[in-house]
Amino acid sequence: TSSHKLRLYERDDYRGLMSELTDDCACVPELFRLPEIYSLHVLEGCWVLYEMPNYRGRQYLLRPGDYRRYHDWGGADAKVGSLRRVTDL
């Protein structure tokens, strides 16, 4: 099985509160109590970021690497509604 891990930060450049995720999350704002995510670091696996909860809205593919600001993943703003692991490519 492949492993997945990413870290979410409330501010750009990996500042502020950090939360780690290793499984799908249908509602990021509810789980982490963060209305917006300004940076993230994908440590393992690929993920799909959705701008709205319950895997809706615009989708962004996140490969392992650094995303210091939301425009690094192509986002128009810092809204992160849900995240899902990519298990098949």
Rank of each mutant, 00 (worst) to 15 (best):
D23Y: 08
T1E: 09
V48N: 06
N54A: 05
V86W: 09
Y55T: 03
T1P: 00
D66K: 15
R68G: 03
A26C: 12
D88V: 03
D24F: 06
R33A: 12
R63C: 08
E20G: 01
Y9C: 00
C46K: 14
R7V: 09
Y38S: 15
V28F: 04
L8D: 02
Y9A: 00
Y9L: 02
H4L: 01
R58W: 02
E44I: 04
R15A: 14
D88W: 04
N54I: 06
L34I: 15
G57N: 00
L17S: 14
T22I: 09
E20R: 01
L34F: 15
D24I: 10
D77K: 13
A78I: 02
M18R: 06
R85H: 02
R84S: 01
Y60C: 01
R68D: 00
E30L: 08
E20M: 05
L40F: 07
P53D: 07
V42Q: 03
L43G: 00
G16S: 04
G65C: 05
R68Q: 06
L62P: 00
D66I: 14
D13K: 10
P53F: 04
Y55V: 01
E36V: 10
S39H: 05
G57D: 01
A76K: 09
D24K: 07
V48L: 12
L17H: 14
V48Y: 13
V48M: 15
T22D: 08
T1M: 14
W47D: 07
G81N: 04
P29F: 15
G75H: 09
G65T: 03
L31C: 11
I37F: 12
T87H: 10
E36Y: 14
Y55N: 05
L49I: 05
L31A: 11
T22L: 07
L62K: 01
D88T: 06
G16P: 02
R11N: 11
P35V: 06
P29R: 10
G45S: 06
W73S: 05
C27L: 06
R11F: 14
G81K: 11
L61G: 13
R7N: 04
R15S: 12
E44F: 03
L31G: 06
L40Q: 00
D24C: 03
A76C: 10
W73R: 06
L83Y: 04
T1G: 09
R63K: 11
C27E: 07
E10W: 07
E44K: 15
H41D: 05
G81Q: 04
T1C: 15
D77A: 10
V86Y: 01
L6E: 01
E30T: 09
Y9R: 03
A26F: 03
R7C: 05
G74T: 04
T87E: 15
P35A: 15
C46M: 13
R63V: 12
P29L: 11
L8W: 03
G16C: 06
Y9F: 10
L34R: 13
Y70I: 10
R15M: 10
T1R: 09
D88Y: 05
G74L: 04
R68A: 07
D77I: 07
L61H: 14
P53K: 06
G74V: 03
Y38V: 14
V86P: 02
T87C: 09
L62Y: 03
D23E: 11
R58K: 08
C46P: 14
P35M: 08
G65W: 00
L83G: 03
S2R: 09
E51K: 01
C27H: 09
R15D: 10
R56P: 01
R85N: 03
H41C: 14
C27N: 11
L43K: 04
D88L: 05
L8I: 12
C27R: 07
H71K: 13
L61T: 14
D72K: 12
A76M: 15
Y55C: 04
Y70T: 06
Q59D: 06
V48F: 09
S3L: 07
